[in-house]
Design a protein around this nucleic acid. Structure first.
Lengths: 309, 309
DNA sequence: ATAGATAATTGACGATAGCAACTATTTAAT
DNA sequence: ATTAAATAGTTGCTATCGTCAATTATCTAT
């Protein structure tokens, strides 16, 4: 077992801090070729990835001075990248969104950033890359504070507006991570639309996980046949992973499927979604069928999992 | 085995970058209560940990603009923290050092920084702390570039000036990591002094590892008895660990001990020096004796290791 | 002896960042 | 209903951070 003193651990953290301060430029060189400065880029990123946030939301989450943010937004607005629309119900706050131009520039910057990181990663073997990613995750989670101090999450039923958000976030994530195309969003929309239109509290259910007032994940239970329920749209925000949200969502779904009188619970997923698979296995699901299919612009391997209730 | 796409790894790195940008303040709050700003602190740190560096050395290693550094140094000099002494052999460059006042302030800041990090770490269990430290090390090494691209190291015999540096660095490291007091430096000085005074190329040897023009480690072979050589002062700079320098130094020492006709090679170390132990074991040393002793202001467990040549 | 390289300095400038005072609006208390 | 307190955002002021280009002094190589 590794022996280490507190002092040596302190030194290690300090050393890393110095190291990262020196190296930080490497991960941010994208900005040299972008129309945005670093804090502008941070704002634009958040605006692009949220649903009409307000300035003080960004101040809080990015830990920036309101005055500073105000000026940055003014600059972005003047350049035609950001729109500020006064909120209807509270005229003090302004809802922020990217203009078409802003979206275009952000997309380009994003692409460039990915390319830069890709070039950097290319110097590492795939095994080293995976090691790095794992270590980054550990650092992130521990530096964010101990688990018990982190904001807990809560589950609640779905509300108007939830579906759109879930569709949007899943599309963004799987689009950027796996390159899935718009047909995936179409499928998501179809599932969500059908769910709402045919919602029957006797056979269906939906859980939205919330954390820090934001949606952190989702799961749906729908009617597949008289004896079989289907778990759909299991999703956890990348930033909220490792908190047991996925497991909790699946547990709730299983519990409710039993309560609703189903004899079986099935789900369909794809083999590349590894972290979800771990949850299914832990919950007792067994893989009953695999089949190749071409969907979402990719060649995928679909999986059917079943749990006897 | 974990499956991950390049795209998902890219996203992970980008996410970490955003995360760290947000959190960076936490690790640097020390500066709020310190007389130095962040870049000043970085400079002071380097000056304190080097032997009369010049400005351009700092520019290069910290990746700072020469003009900026010049101004920072001017400010530090005006406040009486730093001294700039024109080098004798090249009047263009100035050798930098901390004044007594600078050392005092730096010491205080250092202490404060350690305390801050300690407070932060206190929120984690020891296991979590160790996990964090390990992950930081992985990140640091991989972010620094792939092993084959990193500067290689070379071994060379000792030169005038080396001993002082080795004594200084070892004292600094073990002082801050394990809290060893000045009696450790006395022992180091005694070993080094005796080595130089009684140096006999037939029975003794010294290897200095160099990397990027800086000393990265050391090892000594000295006469213990007619049939037994002793390995002493094995040391690798923290920033140069994981490159195989320690192993290489030990290998060289073993090879040379054989060449010099010793039948055995022994060494004395302490049980808390874990990474060194790994090297000894890998090289074939076996632990022959352990004994508690009070040295360097601490209660330690000394170990005697022996290798049959 | 001289051209070119190197170490450091200086001026100019824009980006980064924080604080405090201020306006407009909403919410809570009386 | 009126008023006080709180909230969202803006603006002025200031200091630091960081880059670029021009300049000086010195050293190195031919």
């Amino acid at each position: 077992m590794a022996v280490s003193t507190l002092a040596s651990r302190i030194e290690a953290v300090r050393r890393f801090s110095r190291f990262y301060t020196r190296r930080i430029g490497v991960l941010e060189e994208t900005l040299l070729h972008s129309p945005f400065t670093l804090p502008e880029g941070r704002l634009v990123y958040e605006i692009a990835n949220r649903d009409c946030p307000t300035a003080q939301e960004l101040c809080r989450d990015l830990d920036l001075d309101p005055g500073y943010v105000s000026r940055l937004l003014k600059g972005l607005e003047k350049r035609g990248c950001v729109e500020r629309i006064r909120a209807k119900n509270d005229k003090r706050l302004a809802e922020l969104s990217l203009t078409a131009k802003g979206q275009r520039l952000w997309g380009a910057m994003n692409e460039r950033s990915r390319q830069d990181i890709a070039n950097f990663l290319a110097e590492l073997s795939i095994l080293q890359q995976q090691k790095l990613v794992k270590a980054l995750g550990v650092v992130e989670q521990l530096l964010d504070g101990p688990p018990e101090k982190r904001a807990p999450f809560t589950l609640r039923p779905h509300q108007p507006g939830d579906m759109g958000w879930i569709i949007r976030r899943q599309m963004q994530l799987y689009g950027s991570e796996y390159g899935w195309d718009g047909s995936f969003e179409a499928m998501l929309a179809e599932i969500a639309g059908t769910f709402i239109a045919k919602f029957n509290p006797k056979t269906d259910n939906c859980w939205i996980a919330e954390r820090n007032g934001e949606i952190a994940g989702s799961a749906f239970l729908v009617h597949a046949s008289k004896t079989t329920g289907q778990l759909r749209m299991l999703y956890v925000e990348p930033s909220a992973r490792g908190l047991g949200i996925g497991q909790r969502l699946v547990d709730e779904c299983i519990r409710d499927a039993r309560a609703k009188g189903y004899r079986k619970l099935m789900l369909w997923t794809n083999d590349i979604l590894v972290s979800a698979r771990r949850i299914y296995i832990a919950a007792g699901f067994r893989l009953v069928k695999e089949e190749r299919h071409n969907s979402f612009g990719k060649k995928l391997v679909g999986q059917y999992w079943v749990l006897d209730l």
